[in-house]
Computed example of a mutant assay.
Amino acid sequence: MCNNDLLAPTTPADADFGDFVKDEDEAEDLEEVTEPWTNYEATDNKNIFYPICLGEVLNDRYLVEHKLGFGGGSTVWMAHDLLEKKDVALKVMSSWPWAENEVRMHREIARTVKDAKRLVVALAGFTLPVPVSGTGDRDGNAFEHQVLSLEALESLHAAGIVHRDVSEGNCMWGVTLAHLSRSAKYKELGRPLRERIPHVQHPYKQGELVGAINNPDHLRRNNFHLGDFGLSKKVTDPETQRGYPDLKFCSPERLHKHEPSTACDIWSYMVVFSILYLEFSLFNSLEGNVIGDHVRCLGPLPAEWKGHYTHPGGRDSWYDQSVKPDPKHNLAAKVALRRSDADPVEREHVVAIMAKVLVYDPAKRPTATELLMDLDFRAIMDRYGC
């Protein structure tokens, strides 16, 4: 167990909290699916992760039992609330400024969003021995509930908030574990595999790399949520938090010095939609290549954007108005290739939806409300029982 005078006492040493790696091969396999151990290196690192051990009790209340996942600025843990006797999730944020912005946006959402039931908003927050906060979170995604995540965006946008990081990892379904013992949870979710964080000595305490839970389909609930507000902002905020989503989700105008808007969220939403429907990403996630994919699929970028690309490797050919979409890589071709099992009418609806949203001019994209009422969108949602 991890022991530290700044934390509440841990549970007894003989309590079951999974299995430590047995050998070097098992350790290497674990490190391939966890956050990099360098995230915990304190030297010359502005984005230090807070180390956690299974079996710790945080804030004198939350017993850490398993790992839900991790992102670029946080780890997410399954914990048992010893006070209220219920399972919760703890999002433990790093020292990066995104953490401070996310706390601010959770408060803003609680204050201004009228319908937040489909948003993963913190139930409570607390400060650990270094400036890191804990918030409630969930994980997962499902195509059949995309209508719910779009409704979540609609609620945010109605309050004048841009999410800025809509991705498949931030669209989440609920999981029910009510009244299960820890051993029963491990039977359903897989026993945690763990090892001490290697190679670095955190200045505050020890921690562990822990493999994430499995996600059994039978535990999913029919509620769908949108979370992670580290990059979110009010449209009226005078400054924008630095950062982009994974480039394959990023709208092209954001890569050409345009300020974020609700329209950039709609673009990102459609990329998530396409991944879940096609089981394939429409666009690359590498610098430069993502814009090349945009052009091959959708045609040339607006000529007036030339010279404004924010990343290295821009090409004049992207803005050449004589260039046409590649017929082997346009929307219709991608849908036909990846969903040959779907009937032609369904494929036509999907291509029509994508074509309405994946346009370069943000002003011409439908709003979340308009997309929810769109006849092609409704036809697909009705087919999938949404």
Rank of each mutant, 00 (worst) to 15 (best):
A332Y: 12
D139A: 13
R315P: 06
L371K: 03
P216W: 04
Y360N: 10
K185W: 09
P129E: 11
E144L: 10
P131A: 06
L148S: 14
H294N: 12
R347C: 03
R254T: 08
A142W: 09
V33K: 08
L193S: 02
I213R: 10
Y319I: 04
T112A: 12
A333N: 05
I197G: 02
G71K: 01
Y244V: 06
H145G: 14
D246I: 11
A42M: 07
T38M: 11
A27E: 12
D23R: 00
G190I: 00
I380N: 07
G134Q: 02
P252I: 02
I48C: 13
V323R: 12
I353N: 03
A303H: 10
S94F: 07
P198Q: 04
K85H: 15
V210P: 01
E304P: 03
N59T: 11
G136R: 14
Y384E: 09
G314S: 13
D16P: 01
V121W: 04
D265V: 00
P238K: 07
H163Y: 01
D44I: 06
A27C: 05
K117R: 15
G136E: 15
P216G: 03
A89G: 13
V272E: 04
S181L: 02
V323D: 05
G125T: 14
K91G: 00
K233G: 12
E259L: 15
H294D: 12
P325H: 06
K257H: 12
P192T: 01
L68Y: 07
A13D: 13
E195N: 13
D237I: 02
L375D: 14
P97T: 07
T43H: 14
V21Q: 01
